[in-house]
Design a protein around this nucleic acid. Sequence first.
DNA 1: GGTGCCATTGATAATCAATATCATTAAGAT
DNA 2: ATCTTAATGATATTGATTATCAATGGCACC
Lengths: 139, 139
Amino acid sequence: MAPEAERLPLAGSRATRRRSAIIDALTNASTFHSARDLQKLASDAGHPMALSTVYRALQALSAANEVDVLHPSCGEALYRRCTLGHHHHLVCRQCGQATEIADEALEKWVERTANQHGFTEPHHTLEIFGTCQECAKFG
Amino acid sequence: MAPEAERLPLAGSRATRRRSAIIDALTNASTFHSARDLQKLASDAGHPMALSTVYRALQALSAANEVDVLHPSCGEALYRRCTLGHHHHLVCRQCGQATEIADEALEKWVERTANQHGFTEPHHTLEIFGTCQECAKFG
DNA sequence: GGTGCCATTGATAATCAATATCATTAAGAT
DNA sequence: ATCTTAATGATATTGATTATCAATGGCACC
Ligand SMILES: [Zn+2]
Ligand SMILES: [Zn+2]
Ligand SMILES: [Zn+2]
Ligand SMILES: [Zn+2]
């Protein structure tokens, strides 16, 4: 069982105003947001920046395992700051509210299934989309 | 428990040479292929066509639940003709060879997990990527 | 504080998959 | 054969993301 990857800051990377602004925006948000969303959030917080800068920050954070990326079947990628470790998401299809799901039994199932078919080094993606209680009430 | 969607041909759609060529290409392939791949496969089989036509055929087939679509984190969407019913995939990250996975226990787990968090109408996506035996041998 | 190196930034252009437009072609019913 | 209308292909367009590159600014060292 390989330990989770360390989350050291990338070698040679610098702490800048823009990057902290993006991290702040992500930290304050409980839902997934697009790069454009984050640009606006940062701007509203007094830190306007170019969209390319947002993308670059997200790229770095993603490489450092500081954010989770969701690739919906259509549209922009969505980003969220998550807790450490492997997990999946339960996402409200209306409001975007996301709950982290970590389940040992599921992980075992994945590994067992892959091995049964002779596949090694199984990686996987799993996302559950539903309607949350709030949105079911007022949706 | 809603029954699986019917797979009637779309109302007003016509059977054409190009569409059968795409269906043939998909049927002969055991792996996922991009729209460009399928254009080439159809062309090699003597049925050249514009890429837009390929996309339109795939759109129709996808809407009719005749093909499964994979959206890798980067790059083009991948298409594959699948058997009827809800299932997931075990995909070789090298050769693209895909195995269908249908597991009642997993489906139950998804529904239970969603319900536990107050989410209704849970949809989900799950793909497992690994290295198949053949590719593990020859790298 | 000042200096220098080099990562970062922003403006802009480029990519690339996928879709829209629209005149032309052809399926298939009568 | 004729007619209605879906399908097609050439082309332009969209939209997200990445590349380019000159100018800026962290920050390590003096
Ligand atoms: Zn909601
Ligand atoms: Zn997992
Ligand atoms: Zn393989
Ligand atoms: Zn399933």
